[in-house]
Design a protein around this nucleic acid. Structure first.
Lengths: 327, 327
DNA sequence: GTGAAAGCGCTAACAG
DNA sequence: CTGTTAGCGCTTTCAC
């Protein structure tokens, strides 16, 4: 139990120099095959592992990538983390997850932590309201923004979702089914995604030649609770006959409100959710939704990490969301 | 862009020795207040962060804990990871997640990776079929086994779930409702949890004075697919009128099979799931289930990490699962 | 109060 | 083929 096993301890044990051990273990050509095998065998027995700290200090990378998510219970983020973790294992990266809860302070804390351990890259869903000053001093850490983009002219790469066509299609679809009063709940303009989704919804209305009804458009800081409450309100107003959600958490919250409401009466409002958790296809005979290609996003994130080791920030990459009609 | 900011680079910049910088930054008493402030200001400007690698090499800990999970899409594991990540942030630990997919090779690979970076502890759901030899050479890394326990006499701590009472209660509950043919799908005996859950189910049958019907008891390597297939079989047999599941993935798979089946006809079989994802309370007017206190498990895991810094392995901790009756 | 030296584990660059 | 030296960033120990 006398401390860690190091190349030096192995060297002493074998009565040779630590350099020979180092070379033997990294399969350097200039080692007698005999010696190499003896060293490798002994190292195995002793349970030697290279110190990542020492490697990091010498300038080798850390093979650690950070992932900053608002939370991970939401199935969208869980799927993303899952796929990304899998892809990371493939490339022998380690995935360090921090939860920000969409809070800026938590976010900078997490970033600082990653900087301390010299993470090679961060994939992050930027918290709402951050400015460029939030991301000062990123050192050599590559940053990939996910879904939301903090600054148009950001030095970081971005993986975005173009949900505009899907949202417009959703409105059109509902209009075609005869709905004249379509409500919308989404994030407010503090988020780039909030702005663009709302704009798409409005475009959809215009396209379907429906008027905008301000009391049917609700925005705010996105959360499960927020979605639930606004949906309850809209339900109470009894004006809208359909609802489109522009956010993962919001969508789940809305669904919850529907379930609560349908226990008493059955107001049967048409609904288009956001994101596509597995159970959306089960309940109520299937929930229509705007599906985001989460696996492809995650794969792409890792792709960027492994491929553009040296490249500069790539252009924002955009994946198209897709309307899935069910119900 | 001339490399990282280090205490030396700051020292040179200020024309003092790197030692003074070190002392100033760690608020050592023996530094002129004037000097200290100048140093701290400059460090801030330059965006200095302590090198975690250097600290680790000097013997300070890494503040990294690993988490090994089969997958993270399953809401139970997602919740666990979420709560644990939150608790980790509170104690300024970093959470490194590896997905094992219940595969032994992936598991040892992950453990080795964690050992390389000198993780201070691992919380792991042991993959099925592993022996003690799987966990050789854990160095100073504390290990906490979750849900499943690999060896009774294991040197590692364990956080377990005692679901025996809940499973017996579930059987009794179904029997009380008049069910005479109750099916069970669970993990096979390669898992300690598989063994004990099946035993509990049998005890429940005995207690309710129901006979064991071997064709209604299905075990195997737990997975979504496995649950789905066995449920489909049982549905086809048209013998059982109720089903109890003994596994998270299995339970979801079973649910899927039910949903598929109910699209054609409505066989209406009573069902008790395992684990309590949020949507279980919504669909079909509520799914009865065996709820595992996941948040408490996660909190306890971190508690153990922070408190027993020096203590030996604590006794296996057990939390009681709870039958939630809905439908 | 401040500085210089040593060493944590490892490898690149020189000796032999 | 093998060994020695030096240095990555940091703190502990001992000088001044």
């Amino acid at each position: 139990m006398a401390g860690r096993v190091t190349i030096k301890s192995i060297a002493k044990d074998l009565g040779i120099s630590h350099m020979t051990v180092s070379r033997a273990l990294s399969n350097h050509p200039n080692v007698l095959k005999e010696t190499r095998e003896a060293v490798q065998k002994r190292a195995q027995e002793l349970g030697y592992v290279k110190s990542a700290a020492a490697m990091a200090m010498r300038g080798g990378g850390t093979k650690i990538v950070g992932l900053l998510l608002p939370n991970i219970v939401n199935e969208f983020y869980a799927r993303f983390a899952n796929t990304m973790a899998l892809a990371c294992e493939e490339h022998s990266y380690q995935l360090l997850i921090h939860l920000t809860n969409d809070d800026l302070k938590a976010e900078s804390l997490a970033l600082e932590g990653l900087r301390e351990i010299q993470a090679e890259a961060v994939v992050m869903v930027p918290a709402p309201g951050g400015t460029e000053s939030t991301s000062t001093h990123l050192d050599g850490m590559r940053v990939i923004q996910l879904i939301r983009q903090r600054k148009e002219k950001d030095p970081a790469s971005a993986i975005l979702v173009d949900d505009a066509p899907a949202i417009r299609e959703a409105v059109q679809h509902l209009a075609d089914k005869g709905h004249r009063h379509i409500a919308y709940i989404g994030a407010d303009s503090a988020l780039s995604s909030g702005r663009s989704r709302l704009a798409s919804f409005r475009q959809g209305l215009a396209q379907a030649e429906l008027p905008e009804e301000t009391n049917l458009i609700q925005t705010g800081v996105p959360s499960f609770e927020m979605g639930r409450e606004h949906t309850a309100e809209i339900l109470q107003q009894k004006q809208a006959t359909a609802l489109i959600c522009g956010g993962f958490e919001i969508s789940n919250g809305a669904l919850n409100a529907f379930m609560d409401a349908s226990e008493q009466s059955a107001p049967q409002m048409s609904f288009v959710g956001y994101g596509d958790p597995s159970f959306y296809s089960w309940i109520n005979g299937g929930i229509s939704t705007i599906r985001v290609p989460v696996d492809r996003l995650a794969r792409k994130a890792v792709d960027i990490l492994v491929s553009s080791q040296t490249d500069g920030p790539s252009n924002p990459l955009t994946f198209e969301a897709q309307l899935v009609v069910r119900k």
